[in-house]
Each structure stands twice: as structure tokens, then as C-alpha cells.
Amino acid sequence: MIGEDKFLVVALVMAIIFSGLAVYLYLLDRKLSKIEKKQQELLANKQEGK
């Protein structure tokens, strides 16, 4: 096919963009888990204080 290498470039660029989004999603997920944990500890502490 004509311009077979161009297909490769498109695939590569799209894959890189998508991986970036995936990493962003993963980091967001981890950050949320951390905050959730902290929040739970805070709530537990509060209950002990009372």
C-alpha cells in the first residue's frame, strides 16, 4: 500500500497520546485512593477522640 510508513506514524502518535491519558487516569486513581485512606484515618481518629 502507498504510504505504509505513514500509517505506522499515525498509530504511534495515537498510542502515545492515549498512553499519556491512561497514565493520567491511573495517577488520578492512586491519588484518590490516598486521600480516601487519609479521610478514613481522620474519621477514625475523630471517633476515638469522642
Binding site: 498509530a11 495515537m14 492515549f18 498512553s19 491512561a22
Partner: peptide
């Protein structure tokens, strides 16, 4: 799955 569909879907 999406990564596969991007790469394989273009090629």
C-alpha cells in the same frame, strides 16, 4: 484493549 485497537486498528 483500547491500545490494541488503536495500533492494530490503524495497521
Amino acid at each position: 484493549l483500547i491500545l490494541y485497537s488503536i495500533i492494530y486498528g490503524i495497521l
